[in-house]
Amino acid sequence: MSPEYALNGLFSEKSDVFSFGVITLEIITGKRSTGFYPFKQSINLLGYAWQHWEEDRSLELLDPCIGTSIAPPPQVAKCVQIGLMCVQEDAADRPTMSMVVSMLGNENATVLPLPKQPAFAIGRNHPVKEPSSTESKSSVNEMTISIAEGR
């Protein structure tokens, strides 16, 4: 979910670009966008990928099941860079989908713009508190019951 939609309820074509970037990074890494990423302050795949990008280790993101024989390193680096460009925090900084298609399809691409830090990439210094089984699962007004279940 794009930050402008999550925080302000605003949806645009740049929200779709954000989603495309997340899916691109999921395909490259073979990991889900949410989950446990034990890398510095990363709270999700976007932070994990950003940390690798900043340290010039984006090729390490490639899922070992894919391997470099299927995905040559220059193509992997290009896809990581494009994926990170799509998930930039400010929607105005993200490319349009037509620009993404052009960047992906152009073998003789000129230098691509450098991505800025993605939205929701850096976590907090303290862990998120998990509700205990003894805590009430009803709302404050006791009119509804919310039960959180995983997929």
Rank of each mutant, 00 (worst) to 15 (best):
S2D: 01
G9H: 01
S12A: 10
K14S: 10
V17D: 00
F20S: 14
L25I: 14
T29K: 03
R32F: 08
G35V: 07
P38E: 09
P38Y: 03
P38W: 03
K40D: 09
Q41V: 06
I43L: 13
N44C: 08
N44K: 05
N44Y: 03
Y48A: 02
W50F: 08
Q51D: 13
W53F: 15
E54W: 02
E54T: 12
E55Y: 05
E55M: 11
R57D: 06
R57F: 00
R57A: 14
E60S: 10
L61P: 04
L61W: 01
L62Y: 01
D63Q: 06
P64K: 04
C65G: 02
C65E: 08
C65D: 07
I66M: 08
I70C: 01
P72V: 09
P72L: 12
P73Y: 02
P74G: 08
Q75Y: 03
A77P: 01
K78H: 13
C79A: 15
C79S: 14
G83L: 05
M85E: 05
C86F: 11
V87A: 03
Q88M: 13
D90G: 07
D90S: 15
A92G: 10
A92L: 12
S98C: 03
V100K: 15
V100D: 14
V101W: 11
V101K: 14
V101L: 15
N106C: 15
A109Q: 12
V111M: 09
L112A: 07
L112Q: 08
L114F: 10
K116P: 07
Q117I: 14
Q117A: 14
N125K: 05
P127C: 03
P127E: 04
V128W: 00
E130I: 04
E130R: 07
S133Q: 06
T134E: 09
T134N: 04
S136M: 03
S138F: 07
V140W: 05
M143A: 08
M143K: 13
T144G: 00
I145E: 10
S146L: 08
E149T: 13
R151M: 09
